[in-house]
Write a protein that binds this DNA or RNA. Structure first.
Length: 548
RNA sequence: GUCCCGUUCGUCUAGUGGUUUAGGACAUCGCCCUUUCACGGCGGCAACACGGGUUCAAAUCCCGUACGGGACGCCA
C-alpha cells in the first residue's frame, strides 16, 4: 500500500496529513448544536433549499447553536459562475442568517473552514490516504463502460445494481496489478472497502422518520473521483465531522444512503451526527404528485416568487406553515409577531411530502400586505419595482404622495383593512385608473357598464358636478348624493324600488355605480368617497365632464 | 428489477387505544353586513386508501395488498 500512496503523492501532491489537521482542529463546546445547509452552486436557488435552510437554521438558533453555510462544489461539471452569490443572497433575502461559512464568493467567516469544498482538497486527500493505509479503501481502475456492463448484467439477472461482493473487481486486486495500472497512468477512483452485509438489518433513529430498519451498505462506493475531488458521501463525512455538525437536516432522497454515511463515520472512528430526513415539496402534474423539479417547474426557483412579487415574509410564512403544524395557531394568536419568534419544534414536522399550494400562499400574502401601513407598502413595492417593474418605479418616485394617498384608502383609520393586493406584481393593475395617462376608457363606457340610458347618466352627472363639494364628510356627501339620486329617479332603497321597479332607473346604489364607473371605468372599486378625495376635485370634475 | 419511504376533507394538517357526531386553516358554495368590490360575521359541502388481525374498544397497535414518491452515478 505504501507504494500506492507514494504513487498517489506524485499524482495529487499534498503534504497535509491527518495529524496536522487534528492538531489544528478545535472541538466545539459540549452540547452545542450545529447545523448546516450545503447547497451546490448550480446557478439557481431552489425553494426546497430555502425550506431546508430555514429548518436547519431554526434547529440551530432555537438551541443557541451555530448554523453553517457550506458550498458543495465538488462537481465541476455543474458548477456555474456567480452561483455562490445567488445562494448567499437568496438566503439573506429571506432573513436566514448563517453564523459561519461563505459570506460572498470570495470571503468566509468562522474557525472551521474553509467552507467551500473545492478549497478543502488536501484535507480530503489526507483522509483518503489514511484509509488507504489502513486498508479501508482501495483504488479502482474500472472504466465507465466496464461499470455500465456490470450494471447491465445485474439488471438482466434481476440483481441489485452496484459495485459490491464479487462484482467489486478491484476489491482484492493483487498489489502488482494495482502498481502496474498506476505506472501506466490508468485513471482511477478510490473506493471505500465495505464490510457490511446486505442481509443484515440495522436500526437507525431518524429525528423525523423515527426508528427505521435499513440494510447495511455492502457497496464499495467511490469516495475519491478520478479528478481528485471527493464524492458527496466522503465530503459529507469529513466536513460534518470537522465542522462539528450535530444535526444533519436534509432531503429524504438521502435516506437510502444513511447506512453508508453511518458506516463511513464509524470507519473513521467518529460518532455520526443526528439525522433528520425531510420530505420534498411536491407539485401536481397531470394528476400525479411529484417532487418539484427545477427543470420542469418555474415554481421551484425562488426567482418565480420574486418576479410575481410575493413579499419575502409571506413566502417565509408559507414555508414555516409547511414546516411546522403549530405555526398557523401561533399566527392567529400573534398576528404581529415575527416568524422568528415562533417556537419551532422539529417534532411537529409532517412526515409526508406537501403539495405546493399557491392559493394558500396567496392568502398568506394578502394577509401580510394587508397588515402593512401605507408607508411600508409604498417602500416594499418601490423596492420591488426597481428591478421588476421599472416604469412603475419611475412613477412611484415622481408621485410618492399620490401613491401614499391611494394606499391609505381603507387601510388607515379603519377597523378592517381591505385585502385586495395579493402580491407586488398585481398592485399596479388594481390602481392604474388613478392615473390620467393610464385611464382611457372607450366611448360610451358608462352607459355600457351601468346599463343606464345616456340621458339619465348625463343629467345625473351634470347635476352632481354642479353640487360637488369636496369639503363634505363622507356621511354628508353620501346623504347629498342620495337626495340627488332621488331627484333623478332613483329609489332611496331596495325596498322602495322593488315595490314599483318601473317608476325608477334603479336604486341609489345604481346611481353610485354611474359615478364609480365614470370615475374609474370599473364597476368594482374601493370606497367611492375616499377615492374622490384622493383623486382631488379637479380630476373628479374633469373625468365626470368627459363622460357627460 | 431490487431496496427504502409515505398514505386523515380538493390542499396543509390536528389526532400518540375510549375526551371524536374525526377538530382547524386555505380553497369552494350559501346567507348576513353593505352605495360596488374587498374586509368581516354566520353556516354548508367535504377525509381516516383497502383487507385481515390484536383488543371490551382502532384513524391510532400488528400483518398483508393497492396506490404514490424516492434511491440504486466518478450528481448532489
Amino acid at each position: 500500500m505504501d507504494n500506492i500512496i507514494k504513487k498517489m503523492d506524485t499524482l495529487f501532491p499534498s503534504t497535509l496529513t491527518v495529524e496536522d489537521i487534528e492538531k489544528e482542529h478545535k472541538p466545539r463546546p459540549e452540547n452545542h448544536t450545529v447545523t448546516r445547509i450545503a447547497p451546490s452552486p448550480t446557478g439557481m436557488m431552489h425553494i426546497g433549499s430555502v425550506y431546508a435552510a430555514l429548518i436547519s437554521e431554526r434547529v440551530a438558533h432555537m438551541a443557541n447553536g451555530t448554523f453553517i453555510l457550506r458550498i458543495e462544489d465538488t462537481d465541476s461539471k455543474r458548477k456555474v459562475e456567480g452561483a455562490t452569490d445567488i445562494i448567499i443572497n437568496g438566503l439573506k433575502r429571506y432573513g436566514i442568517t448563517s453564523d459561519e461559512g461563505a459570506i460572498s464568493a470570495t470571503e468566509e467567516v468562522g474557525d472551521y473552514g474553509p467552507y467551500t469544498q473545492s478549497d478543502r482538497y488536501d484535507i480530503y486527500l489526507a483522509y483518503i490516504k489514511k484509509l488507504l493505509q489502513e486498508d479501508l479503501a482501495y483504488p479502482c481502475f474500472c472504466t465507465e463502460d466496464e461499470l455500465n456492463d456490470i450494471r447491465e448484467q445485474q439488471t438482466k439477472q434481476g440483481l441489485r445494481t452496484g459495485y459490491y461482493g464479487s462484482w467489486a473487481k478491484y476489491k482484492n486486486a493483487p498489489q502488482e496489478v494495482i502498481l502496474e495500472h498506476l505506472e501506466k497512468g490508468t485513471p482511477f477512483t478510490v473506493r471505500f472497502k465495505s464490510t457490511g452485509k446486505n442481509f443484515n438489518k440495522r436500526l437507525f433513529d431518524d429525528i423525523l422518520k423515527g426508528k427505521r430498519n435499513l440494510p447495511e451498505n455492502d457497496a464499495d462506493v467511490v469516495i475519491l473521483k478520478a479528478s481528485g475531488l471527493p464524492t458527496y458521501h466522503f465530503a459529507h463525512i469529513i466536513d460534518d465531522h470537522l465542522m462539528g455538525t450535530t444535526h444533519v437536516i436534509r432531503g429524504d432522497e438521502w435516506l437510502s444512503s444513511l447506512p453508508l454515511h453511518v458506516q463511513l463515520f464509524e470507519a473513521m472512528g467518529w460518532t455520526p451526527p443526528h439525522y433528520g430526513h425531510i420530505s420534498p415539496i411536491e407539485i401536481m402534474d397531470d394528476n400525479k404528485r411529484r417532487k418539484l423539479s427545477k427543470r420542469k417547474d418555474p415554481e421551484a426557483s425562488v426567482t418565480f416568487y420574486e418576479e410575481k412579487g410575493y413579499p419575502k415574509e409571506a413566502v417565509l410564512e408559507y414555508l414555516m406553515n409547511l414546516a411546522n403544524s403549530g405555526f398557523e395557531k401561533f399566527r392567529t394568536e400573534n398576528p404581529d409577531e415575527s416568524v422568528w419568534n415562533f417556537p419551532f419544534d422539529l417534532q411537529k414536522m409532517g412526515r409526508s411530502g406537501a403539495l405546493l399550494d399557491l392559493a394558500k400562499l396567496d392568502s398568506i400574502s394578502r394577509d401580510y400586505i394587508g397588515r402593512l401601513s401605507a408607508e411600508e407598502l409604498y417602500n416594499s413595492l418601490f423596492e420591488w419595482s426597481e428591478t421588476m417593474a421599472p416604469d412603475l418605479y419611475t412613477r412611484m418616485k415622481n408621485d410618492k404622495d399620490y401613491f401614499l394617498n391611494i394606499f391609505k384608502i381603507e387601510r388607515e383609520n379603519v377597523e378592517r383593512v381591505r385585502k385586495d393586493f395579493t402580491n407586488w406584481s398585481t398592485i399596479w393593475h388594481e390602481i392604474d385608473y388613478f392615473f390620467d395617462d393610464s385611464f382611457s376608457p372607450e366611448d360610451g363606457y358608462v352607459a355600457k357598464i351601468t346599463e343606464q340610458s345616456p340621458e339619465v347618466i348625463k343629467e345625473f352627472l351634470s347635476d352632481f358636478i354642479n353640487h360637488y363639494n369636496e369639503k363634505l364628510s363622507n356621511e354628508d356627501w353620501f346623504s347629498n348624493m342620495k337626495t340627488l339620486a332621488e331627484t333623478h329617479g332613483f329609489a332611496p332603497n331596495g325596498k322602495t324600488y322593488k315595490k314599483d321597479p318601473d317608476s325608477y332607473h334603479g336604486t341609489v346604489s345604481d346611481a353610485a355605480k354611474i359615478l364609480r364607473v365614470a370615475l374609474t371605468g370599473r364597476a368594482q372599486t374601493p370606497d367611492l368617497y375616499s377615492l374622490m378625495q384622493v383623486m382631488g376635485k379637479e380630476r373628479v370634475i374633469q373625468r365626470l365632464n368627459k363622460s357627460v
